[in-house]
Amino acid sequence: MTPEEQIWQALDDVKDPEIPKVSIVDLGMITEVRVDGGNAFVTMTPTFAGCPAIHVLKESIAERINQLEGINHTEVKVSFEVPWNSNRISDRGKELLRESGFAPPPVHEGYIELTVISQAACPFCGSNNTVMQTPFGPTLCRSIHYCNHCLQAFEQFKPVA
C-alpha cells in the first residue's frame, strides 16, 4: 500500500460525530490526500459552511493520521475548492445511512426543487408513501419526513446541489 492509500484507509476510521457508522470518506468530504516525506496533507470540504463539526473533524483527522508509521505531521485544510454536494456520498455511505435510520439523499442533477427534496424512501420499511414535514431538521444536513405506511417519522440526509 502506498502512504496515500494507508491514509485513505485510516480516514475511514474518522466518523461523522452524529452518525457513528458513516465515515467522512463515505460522505465524500475528503477531496485530496498527499504525502511529502513525513508530512501528510489532507483537504476536506464541509457538507455545510456552517457545520459546527468542522473543527472537531479537523482534529480527529490529524490525530488519526499521526498514528500511522512514518507520518510526523498532518496538515488538514478546509477548502471549498471542490464544493460538497450530496451526490458525493458513496453507495456504501448510502447503505450505512439507511442502516443508521436515515434516508439517503436522492441523486440529483445539480438542481434542487421541492419535488426532489420530498422524495424519500422510508429507511425503516422501504415505502415511498412518505411526506416531507420540514426541510430543516435537527442538524443542517437533515430534513424531517413521515412514512404513511409504517407510521414513523424519519430523517433524510438532505440533497444539496
Binding site: P46, F48, A49, F80, P83, W84, N85, I112, I117, P135, F136, L140, K158, V160, A161
Partner: peptide, 10 residues
Amino acid sequence: ARKIKGEIKY
C-alpha cells in the same frame, strides 16, 4: 459562492 448558493436554495 458555489457552495453557499446550494444552501440558500433551501
